[in-house]
């Protein structure tokens, strides 16, 4: 194909236009390849941190490097997949003392806004539904990286942290004064669609 004098800049403009300026990229969280983790930690007696995770969840996000403030994310968690590496404790966590997974099988986070900060950090606001209660939470987000993967795809990853009192979501079981709060750590990698 022969390009005219006007053709080259027009084509370049079209390419730039299509790739990032207007359309935000949609990503699906890579739960299939397990490059995504939803972990939590609670203090045990105030002496140490106990870690656990949810093994089954799914979600998607959209992110545009040129307009990061428009980023959105939605994550659904299967609460019965809670795993703290101890069957008897997991059974207790699923019971009505904690997650009550028969009654509330799903937890959900849906973002409402994103405020980008410096050095790839930002604050993601949204609504968390847990134990049947929906409340606004703020997640501190860190952009970890993005780029082509070795298999022909494009990936982008973040880590987010938030902290809330379990009682705010109606989980009233008393684990002691130092164990009222739970911290959630979301390490998510998305594959561009």
């Amino acid at each position: 194909m022969k390009l005219s004098k006007f053709g080259t800049p027009l084509l370049l403009a079209a390419l730039t236009f299509g790739s990032s300026t207007l359309v935000a990229d949609d990503y699906v969280i890579d739960t299939k390849g397990a490059h995504a983790f939803i972990q939590f930690r609670v203090q045990h007696l105030g002496y140490s941190w106990l870690y656990g995770r949810f093994n089954e969840f799914s979600g998607k996000f959209s992110y545009d490097e040129a307009a990061p403030e428009k980023a959105t994310i939605e994550v659904n968690i299967n609460t019965a997949s809670v795993d703290s590496n101890h069957a008897e404790r997991d059974k207790h966590l699923r019971s009505d003392d904690f997650l009550d997974v028969n009654k509330y099988p799903q937890a959900k986070f849906v973002s409402t806004s994103y405020i980008p900060g410096d050095n790839g950090k930002g604050v993601l606001k949204g609504k968390l539904t847990l134990h049947g209660v929906t409340k606004p939470v703020e997640i501190e987000v860190e952009n970890i990286g993005a780029g082509k993967d070795p298999w022909g795809g494009y990936r982008r990853g973040f880590e987010g942290k938030t902290r809330f009192a379990m009682a705010d979501f109606g989980i009233m079981k008393n684990l002691g004064p130092k164990s009222k709060d739970v911290e959630m750590i979301l390490s998510l990698e998305g594959i561009k669609q």
Partner: peptide, 8 residues
């Protein structure tokens, strides 16, 4: 089967 579910 409860107590040994995690391999313990």
């Amino acid at each position: 089967l409860i107590s040994t579910a995690d391999g313990r």
